[in-house]
Amino acid sequence: MRYLRLPLFMLLLTLTTLSPRPAQSAIDREQEVREVLTTLVKARTANMGWDVRIRRITITGALKLPEGNIDYEVLAPQSWQGWGNMTLSVIARQKDRVLRNIPVRLDVEALADTVVTSRHINHGTIITAADLALQKREVTYNSHLFARSIGEVVGKKARTTLQANQSVRADQVERVPLIKSGQMVTIVAENGVLKVSVTGKAHSSGAAGDIIRVQNLTSLKEIPAKVIDGSTVQIAF
Results as ranks from 00 to 15, higher is better:
Tyr3Cys: 14
Tyr3Thr: 15
Tyr3Phe: 14
Leu4Arg: 15
Pro7Ser: 15
Thr14Trp: 06
Pro20Lys: 14
Arg21His: 07
Ala23Phe: 11
Gln24Leu: 06
Gln24His: 04
Gln24Phe: 05
Gln24Lys: 09
Ser25Asn: 12
Ser25Asp: 10
Ala26Cys: 11
Asp28Ser: 15
Glu32Ser: 15
Val33Thr: 04
Arg34Asn: 13
Glu35Met: 12
Val36His: 07
Leu37Asp: 05
Ala46Asp: 11
Asn47Ser: 15
Gly49Phe: 08
Gly49Asn: 06
Trp50Phe: 08
Arg53Cys: 09
Ile57Gly: 00
Ile59Ser: 05
Ala62His: 08
Pro66Asn: 04
Gly68Met: 00
Ile70Glu: 08
Ile70Phe: 05
Asp71Leu: 12
Tyr72Asn: 09
Leu75Val: 13
Leu75Pro: 00
Gln78Arg: 15
Gln78Ala: 13
Trp80Arg: 08
Gly82Gln: 03
Gly82Cys: 03
Gly82Trp: 00
Arg93Trp: 03
Arg93Ser: 11
Val98Ile: 14
Val98Lys: 10
Arg100Ala: 14
Arg100Trp: 02
Pro103Cys: 09
Val104Gln: 04
Asp107Asn: 11
Val108Lys: 11
Val116Ala: 06
Val116Gln: 14
Val116Arg: 13
Thr117Ser: 15
Asn122Glu: 10
Asn122Pro: 01
His123Met: 08
Thr125Ile: 00
Thr125Pro: 00
Ile127Val: 08
Ala130Lys: 14
Asp131Pro: 02
Leu134Met: 12
Leu134Pro: 01
Lys136Glu: 13
Glu138Val: 09
Val139Trp: 07
Val139His: 03
Val139Leu: 04
Tyr141Ala: 08
Asn142Ile: 10
Ser143Phe: 08
His144Val: 03
Phe146Ala: 10
Ala147Met: 12
Ser149Met: 00
Ser149Asn: 05
Gly151Thr: 04
Glu152Val: 06
Val154Ser: 05
Lys156Ser: 07
Ala158Val: 07
Arg159Tyr: 02
Arg159Met: 14
Thr160Tyr: 02
Thr160Trp: 00
Gln163Val: 05
Asn165Thr: 07
Gln166Arg: 11
Ser167Ala: 09
Val168Met: 13
Val168His: 10
Arg169Gln: 06
Asp171His: 12
Gln172Arg: 07
Pro177Lys: 14
Ser181His: 09
Thr186Gly: 02
Thr186Trp: 03
Ile187Gly: 01
Val188Ala: 09
Val193Cys: 10
Ser197His: 07
Val198Arg: 15
Lys201His: 14
Lys201Cys: 04
Ala202Phe: 11
Gly206Tyr: 01
Ile212Met: 00
Val214Met: 03
Ser219Met: 05
Leu220Ser: 11
Leu220Pro: 00
Lys221Asn: 13
Lys226Val: 13
Thr232Pro: 00
Val233Gln: 11
Gln234Ala: 14
